[in-house]
Amino acid sequence: MQIKQLSVFLENKGGRLNDVANILGEAGINMSAFSLAESSDFGILRVIVSDPVKAQAILKENKFAVSLTDVICVHVPNSPGSLAKILNIITDNGISIDYMYAFAECADANVIIKPDKTEDCIDILQKNKIALIAADELYKI
């Protein structure tokens, strides 16, 4: 249930995000979700792509600092209180969330979560019958 997220270090200068998007686009790699965390002089792009291993290799060739991070993806109804329920389960079990981002479409939403203990988090969510999205499913979106 673990998902490989691409984490790319970017200097805070014009056009770097375009470079990543162009390189991945030309290689035929699709992005299904991403978030950009920023500080004053650098940012970290976190992105779910259709082929993370290939994307990592191509970005490395182009001199980007890029790593793969294990995250999970939770499928929740796009309705009030449904995210709160999941977050309660996670935090009640002593797991912290380093960061998360989400994308919603019509009745459903997908939430990417980076917990501090990935495997424990998957166990607990599965025990609580929370729907998780598998890697191959998500990469295809």
Partner: peptide, 15 residues
């Protein structure tokens, strides 16, 4: 320049 093995996906670690 940070050594490749020390880049993190977390802003707080880089800071």
């Amino acid at each position: 320049e940070v050594n490749e093995n020390f880049y993190s996906d977390e802003i707080s670690k880089m800071l």
